[in-house]
């Protein structure tokens, strides 16, 4: 499970710049759920990894958005991403220690 450093503010206040997160790589059959925070490498960004929230799902297409739309470069610009471009789910924030917590998808259907 790789550690990744968050750069930027589009996922604030859930994830803040400089925080260290654990990204759990998932098997091919895994289906990210709506509301889940995921790490992806959209083909349009040539290898750059982004952290975003799954806003909607249509078949194999996932719309990823930042929590702060005013400061986010997301599916509104690079389009929806395929399942195989999403490489894992953010499951823990481990730094800073006082914000150590598991990252659980909110119940967006509630």
């Amino acid at each position: 499970m790789p550690l990744m450093r968050v750069y930027g503010h589009s996922m604030a206040p859930r994830l803040r710049e400089g925080e260290l997160v654990v990204v759990r790589r998932r098997h091919n059959a895994w289906q990210p759920s709506r509301g889940e925070i995921v790490a992806a490498r959209p083909a349009a960004l040539q290898g750059r990894a982004v952290v975003k929230r799954v806003a909607s799902i249509e078949g194999n297409e996932y719309v990823l958005l930042g929590d702060d739309p005013a400061d986010s470069f997301d599916s509104r610009q690079f389009g929806s991403v395929r399942r195989d471009e999403i490489f894992g789910a953010v499951c823990w924030r481990i730094w800073p220690l006082h914000r150590l917590t598991p990252i659980v998808a909110p119940d967006v259907t509630a």
Binding site: M4, H9, E17, A39, F73
Partner: peptide, 13 residues
């Protein structure tokens, strides 16, 4: 440590 950056912003935040 092999910690990779993961971006949550635009190019000109």
């Amino acid at each position: 440590l092999g910690i990779e950056p993961v971006f949550a912003h635009c190019d000109v935040p």
